[in-house]
Write a protein that binds this DNA or RNA. Sequence first.
DNA 1: TCCTGTGAAACGGTTCACAGCC
DNA 2: GGCTGTGAACCGTTTCACAGGA
Lengths: 212, 212
Amino acid sequence: MSKRISESTVRRLSFYLRSLEHMSQRGETTVSSEGLAEDGGTTGAQVRKDLSQFGSFGKRGTGYDIAVLAAHLRGILGLNRRWRVLLVGAGRIGAALFEYPNFARRGYDCVAIVDEDPAKIGQRWGNIPIQAADCLETIIRAESIDLVILALPAEAAQSVAERAVAAGVRGLMNFAPTQLRRLGRDVPVSEVNLVMELEALSFTITRVGQPA
Amino acid sequence: MSKRISESTVRRLSFYLRSLEHMSQRGETTVSSEGLAEDGGTTGAQVRKDLSQFGSFGKRGTGYDIAVLAAHLRGILGLNRRWRVLLVGAGRIGAALFEYPNFARRGYDCVAIVDEDPAKIGQRWGNIPIQAADCLETIIRAESIDLVILALPAEAAQSVAERAVAAGVRGLMNFAPTQLRRLGRDVPVSEVNLVMELEALSFTITRVGQPA
DNA sequence: TCCTGTGAAACGGTTCACAGCC
DNA sequence: GGCTGTGAACCGTTTCACAGGA
């Protein structure tokens, strides 16, 4: 059991789920693998392969029941529960994430915020107080934090990540413009590196400009 | 000439460049492929393969000259010029991006902002006025915009993207929680989908929890 | 000797094609 | 007939291993 699932498969599952939710809103009830592929720039065969890794959810000759498949995907992606999130860094990016409505909608609750800046400590965002970054470990334990979002300068990211992992969090999302080095335990990390995205874009644009 | 370069290669080049810049700051002058791989969780062979697609930059027995290789990478990634950027959406995410210091540092200049909200139009961020989204095409032409950053609700993203492409921009970066469908011309798009990242993380955490 | 640059092998993911069920 | 689920073929990427230059 438990084969290795590739990262790209997971991304597509996430995308299929969103497509299914749209279809469901439009009142549709079934969809074929080809129909599900259409939105996402992939193929029916790919959809079927992706899903087959987790079970058989369709009916031959008919396709997939939208509600049933969506429920399965939510289960597979671990979205049937809520995650308790600590936000590290109360700057612009932290604020944007804190107010991002899709986070709460998908089951992520920001239950604590820390920052290093004494001027910010004690302020409140909504009803969440900004606490001192020193208290990281205490907060993680007291609030049963599952996930830490790092929205702080590159220099501080590694050490905060290590402390968070040592204190027992189950996952990290890193917005600092640096890539985290291997952490103590083997904890899943999602790297959102905006500079890297920009450079990849700049590379592609430059190449497109000078063809052949 | 002009073979197909994989997206993952580009990501790694971007990462190598950042490592080289750190080394340079620390006063180091040469590095081996193995040394360059160390930071980034990859291997010496991978570094050599990646670089070999663009030329021979190293010396056998010695390694790579840090300054020389960094200059080559900047050239390859198209970072030797500045890009004129239009920000669409003056909300929280837009604000975070606008103030993100690494954007300007890497050659991206936000020279115009548009939004749909009449209450925001006319306000200024720094010395950049927020203009009406209706004027998109006019602004793109008048300001010679290269890149458009979409930081707006999912519903509006597709139509704005199509208008921007039709008006002649060379690339898009999409922060709206939706994936853009095929656009008229074939323009590079960087999708930064935070919800998808969170779901991938949630999937991995859930899997790690129940091993074997 | 040390380390690069590169063919060749191994691996993993995608596409194809079709057997099997509705 | 239509569409799923899946082994097999295909293809691109990574890893290996070594020839060859500093």
